[in-house]
Design a protein around this nucleic acid. Structure first.
Lengths: 341, 341
DNA sequence: CTGAAAGCGCTTACAG
DNA sequence: CTGAAAGCGCTTACAG
């Protein structure tokens, strides 16, 4: 890339200054006289100078890059968050390594290994991962989780952690309260983890709260835990419950993709949505706005979550005091056709 | 990350060899006696040694990282390709920088800048981009395009280029031939670029070929070019054509997302799919299999395309002779409900 | 505010 | 097959 590499020395000679000075204008940290700065900048431009990231990193130990670990990159909810992160990082000149783990333990380990070698300045974790906590706590870089949290209950939040979420308990409560008010009493719950001291637990709590408030008992037969949050899993769950002959009048899936898969199964099995079965999803992905029927959902501000995560991360690595490291953004309950709008 | 960094010197001392030797086992290029190798490996393990990517890169100019430029990461077609690339690269210990450009000229430039600084060993381009050719030809790294091609007609393909596509002309032909045989004579065409010496041109050619063969004249009113391949654009096109009162009996969208958006608009406007209007998409994303009705489409082997791209790239940077650098993978025409199955 | 110099942790001819 | 040494292109105290 570029014929002969032009180094800081070339620039220094061209500008008639020392190499250290060029370095200083590059990192514009210390004071450099405006005049000198100008001269150096001109020289850099004339020579088409590009700093060598390796050399910079070797000395400063700052890689100008970050890493993102995502459970499922094909889920549009996550890709939208990634877009938010990437755009923000790019503006600050950071590169973003991406690792798609499919929740595979080994891939997570390998990803972390690569990130260590690359000396990323920070790691983002999107979605639920088993046991990442263990691996990450002895890393010394900041970690920001998005949509999920690292379960560190009972202890003070380590200064290198932050999380961007919505209030998952209230979100799940909203969805269920809405369904209950519609007269639904038999809601199938499609969940991933529910006992993780984390998002899953909060959502399940919201589910329980709403039912309790409406005087409805929980029916174990309607609960599906540990599901992968894919279209396929939603689809299969509905077939399963139908085959078992369990009666139900609505579905609350903790992911739009899963809800969409469920709707497809309902259609194949001859249930009408929303007449027979009302469906509520979670995430707010675009596909839910265009599906037939369109999907009622909890809209997480995905792009904003990504942006916010990146900004906080940037603050953390610049050693700024970040006092609010457990950020809870507003969600929006979006009513659409799948619940009869 | 790691308390005190253990360097190659520490390993050398621990193993009782020279630093150069440690380096040699690390890069297992040159011959090292099995005995020495063993000793070094043991020492590395004992000390928990992690090579410093900066130092390696500075000397060898090999970053062990690649860059991916994608037009729209929220499109599941691309994210599946990315999964294929990432998985393959990871196995070889490469990190993958991701840049989501949304086809914005400036973001592309900035992305390329960052990649130059990071000295990525190769660049993948997914989807259509305007004028990337210009920027990339003076880069000295290999470039592999996936789903699209860099238009270099009339010249020999530069040795640092490769492309992974399907036969887009035949694919589009298949879709249109199928529609024509169903008796459709007024197919709305939803395209992005059509005059780009590239994928778009090929697809449009296939469209024309099929119509010609069936003795159907092209109706300009049915042609939508330069569309963004999103759900929204598909949706809007249908509203536009409906408002103009143009008669049509089917839709061929060059992207599943666009087709899905179109189906939503049709539903809102009271058209029945497939009874009134047949719809065919392109890409083969999962969402099309679960939509209601399910979507007939051209299935591009997305994951395989990503894997193949990464493998070719690895071959190219390892200076292996790659004779087949314009790889054309098989597509599959998948018939579903949106055309009456 | 700025220059000279040391050194970050590797790789790679150069000898042997 | 292996060791000693130079050097990759920066950054950063240290002086001034």
């Amino acid at each position: 890339m570029g014929e002969k590499t032009v180094t800081i020395k070339d620039v220094a000679k061209e500008a008639g200054v020392g190499a250290g000075t060029v370095s200083r204008v590059l990192n514009d940290a210390v004071h450099v006289s405006p005049k000198t700065r100008k001269a150096v900048e001109l020289a850099m431009q004339r020579l088409g100078y590009k700093p060598n990231a390796f050399a910079r990193g070797l000395k400063s130990n700052n890689s100008y890059s970050m890493g993102v670990i995502v459970a499922d990159i094909t889920n549009p909810c996550f890709s939208k968050i990634i877009r938010g992160i990437e755009g923000t990082l790019q503006k600050s000149g950071f590169g973003m390594f991406l690792f798609d783990t499919e929740m595979d333990e080994e891939k997570v380990t390998q990803s972390i290994n690569i990130m260590e070698e690359k000396k990323v300045s920070g790691i983002f974790i999107l979605g639920e991962h088993f046991d990442t906590k263990k691996m990450l706590t002895d890393l010394y870089v900041p970690v920001v989780t998005v949509t999920s949290q690292i379960p560190i209950c009972g202890y003070e939040l380590p200064s290198n952690f932050a999380s961007i979420t919505i209030n998952n308990e209230r979100a799940a409560y909203s969805a269920m309260d809405f369904l209950c008010k519609k007269g639904k009493r038999k809601t199938v719950l499609l969940m991933s983890l529910a006992d993780d001291e984390n998002v899953g637990k909060a959502r399940y709590q919201g589910y329980q709260n709403a039912l309790k408030e409406h005087g409805i008992e929980i029916d174990q037969e309607l609960l599906f835990f540990n599901q992968r949050l894919s279209m396929e899993s939603g689809y299969e769950c509905i077939y399963k419950i139908h085959e078992k002959g369990v009666d139900f009048d609505s579905i609350f899936a903790v992911s739009d993709l899963t809800a969409l898969g469920a709707m497809r199964a309902l259609s194949e099995l001859g249930y009408a949505v929303p007449e027979d079965i009302a469906v509520v999803g979670f995430d707010g992905i675009e596909q839910g706005a265009y599906s037939i029927p369109s999907l009622t959902t909890i809209d997480q501000p995905r792009f904003l979550m990504g942006e916010t995560a990146a900004k906080i991360m940037l603050d953390m690595i610049h050693k700024k005091k970040v006092l609010n490291r457990e950020i809870i953004l507003d969600f929006e309950f979006v009513e659409r056709e799948s619940t009869g709008k």
